[in-house]
Nucleic acid binder design. Sequence first.
RNA 1: GGGCGAUUAGCUCAGCUGGUUAGAGCGCUGGUCUCACAUACCAGAGGUCGGGGGUUCGAGCCCCUCAUCGCCCACCA
Length: 894
Amino acid sequence: MTDSLPPQYDPSTVEAKLYRWWLDRGLFRPGPGEPYVIMMPPPNVTAQLHMGHGLNLGIQDVLIRFERMRGRAALWLPGTDHAGIATQNVVEKLLAKEGLTRFDLGRPAFVERVWAYVRETGDTILEQIKSLGASCDWDRTYFTLDQGLSDAVREVFVRWYEKKLIYRGKYIINWCPRCLTALSNEEAEKEEVDGKIYRFRYPLEDGSGTITIATTRPETLLGDTGVAVHPKDKRYRKLIGRRVMLPLTDRSIPVVADLAVDREFGTGAVKLTPAHDPLDFEIAARHGLAAIDVMTPEARMAETVPERFQGLDRFEARKRVVAELEALGLVERIDPHRHAVGHCYRCETVVEPRLSDQWFVKMAPLAKPSLEAYESGRLKFIPERRGTEYARWMENIRDWCISRQLWWGHRIPVWYCEAPRCGAVSASRTDLTRCPKCTGPVHQDEDVLDTWFSSQLVPFSSLGWPARAADLDRFYPGHTLVTAPEILFFWVARMVMSGLETQKALPFTTVYLHGTVRDTLHRKMSKSLGNGIDPLDVVAQYGADALRYTVIGGLAVGTDVILDPADLESSFSTGRNFANKLWNMGRFLLSNLEGPVRPLAGKAESAVEKSELALVDRWILARCETTVVEATDAYENFRLNDAAGAIYRFLWNDLADWYLEAIKPRLYGEQAGGDVARAVAAQVFDVALRLLHPIMPFITETLWKRIPGRHPDWSISVAPWPRSDRRAADPCALDEFGALQELVGAVRSIRAEYNVQPGHAVRVFVTEPGEKVQAAIRAMRPTIERLARLSALSLGNGTGAEAEGGAHAVLQDGTAVTVPLGDLVDLGKECARLKAEADRLDQLVGGQEKKLANEQFVSRAPADIVQKERDKLVQWRDQIAVLADKRGRLGCTG
RNA sequence: GGGCGAUUAGCUCAGCUGGUUAGAGCGCUGGUCUCACAUACCAGAGGUCGGGGGUUCGAGCCCCUCAUCGCCCACCA
């Protein structure tokens, strides 16, 4: 068996093949049973896999595999998002290389071009996801532009339109002058920038003076249609109702009074540009002031401004306006000013607030039940604090601008009647060719819907809704949603709203928001910064298991994952080494498990009797039980790093370092009980592999399949989850074996201290052993001798040979350990070592005596705590006494 | 401008409701190619738990405050 397994694990020879095998066996399709559903956040169809995906997908796969093994009908549903702006941008960039724009192609040809691109590259991200081992049900893969999902979009749009939840109107929206489309509030990301605040004087029309306004965007001056002041502002009261000349133009504009003006800010006088500022728009509306749009869609100055400004970029125009005002002596002051400015979340261009006709979803009615779901506890967030963010957003919700001036996406299903007398506006589930009211000719709205309008529906649209579908009945509502906090509002909140509105049920009950993958400077990994780590490189170099172990194991709930792109080795070697360790544990065990292995429990004749178990067997079984309980609890509560840690420690520090080493003589027939050891080892290894499988699916499957007695068709991915067995919990075994470990450790330390040759066996005298040490020696003497490399272990009486020059250690319970090393021992050094140890204990004792002498402590602290502290004091004094005795015998001075 | 989180070993992080001598991985030092594994084994060094104050018999953990970093929200032009 060993011959067929090389000493180093090579994931590349295993993972792809194994993944294929899982798929062929249909193991990722939900079986019978109680459903457990996770909707994968659909990656953009043009996306390339990055570490953020790695983290996100890793977590989901752990959860879905865990529940699958627990017998749930686990469905992890994958798909891709058509990603309106992002995809259109990608294809437009490709066109630009050919010197073309989308307008050169025209809409139908451009859309066809995007489809061609998507058909060609759309599967890339899905294939990349597979290389991570993601156990999705690929048979159900969707794309948000699929017919069924498009039907869902229209169904929801028309329903909401009919319910008056969707409306069209002229409002100030966020406009990206590069993407040439409106953006929602969420898509316009506020960023603090260092700008300037300018104070300009506007002369009164009658020449009797000036009024000074403050602005951060001088170029919008050209679109001013008024100046507003607070009605109670004494400085300006007498100016209300009068008119000022708008500099650089020949227009005069009124001074109005409005409560929305903040007297404290700036000069207390606001210039009103209703077409380019939401507040100005509101104020202007109240006072019947016109709005003048002074910019083109590209944010160049439009024909509505004086000719010399026309065509200038807005920032050029800003300089020009300031310069001209300066020349006119109308600039009072320019001060630095830090403020938040909206940026396009796709291209980071500074967003221009702009007045235009757009479609909106009325959010308040949808938000109400969504907030209620959270407040009643039906919807939970992990970590909890994310819930308050969600609630605050719901409470302050604003209407959602859903129209986008793009060509790629779901076209708004609204048709306008062209008959002059009718002019009906009709929303329809099916394409219209004539007006339903007057049968006149119609044309469809030019805009498409925000991508998130369709992705908010995937929890049910991907299951077949609005058609009647068995999947929908079975898998809606789902359970856990795992995503990055960035899209809490974009996506998560809206899924909740649309789910509650259309399905009358929450799409999921728990939202797990994980952290962000960052570099060592805590910067988000991104292409533009060049600080990314390509997960595919990691998979190729270290294996998917290593990648998964790294991101899962280094991840406390809700915290960021910091990785160093310049040093993959330090990040991923732990996972790779762990896989390799497992591989070699497997090689060792499997080569020793040939032939029948006795069952550990059950009615079979050959079943191992409890009385046959050695101390070390009972110990590893107890540790295994502890690990089952810890890991299961951790998985259940999303503490995946705790699960990973508990399993790692069990496998490496307990099973490999101690148990396997301890049973070697039994396996080799040098000691009795080999068949029991094999039975125990097989059992705990099996259990641990199953516990680890959600995190490291490939290596665990590879090894698990090789355990003798497995049917070749069995897969660990659907093996039953290990059950806790209280009978295996054996505190006595844990204590006694713990004493054994301490004893062995003490001898090893002495050996290292004195540079004893590793091959050289030493004698050891143990005097005044504590109960546990005695029990351990009684039960496991040959094992101790082996692990500590002893030629003999004698229970001495504290006199005679063992008292002569040797190296000494004192265990916690006062057991004295003496290793006679003859000439090797440097007496001075030994005395110093013992003294240092005694001094350390003296300090502890000092503190402890003080603590126990404190009346307050003794009377107020719980009795069991006090007793524990007393025990400690006794123990330490004991150790000190033994140390003193040793030092006396060695003739130490000082 | 509001709200929230973080600050523990050189690095990345654990440390659950306050009560063992504060832990892990990597890195570092010393020793080993011991018949599963040098991607390993054994031993070890390294921390006044960001500063200050407080509550308590007892604080890494609770409270206040300061500092630094980060996140979310926000129509003060």
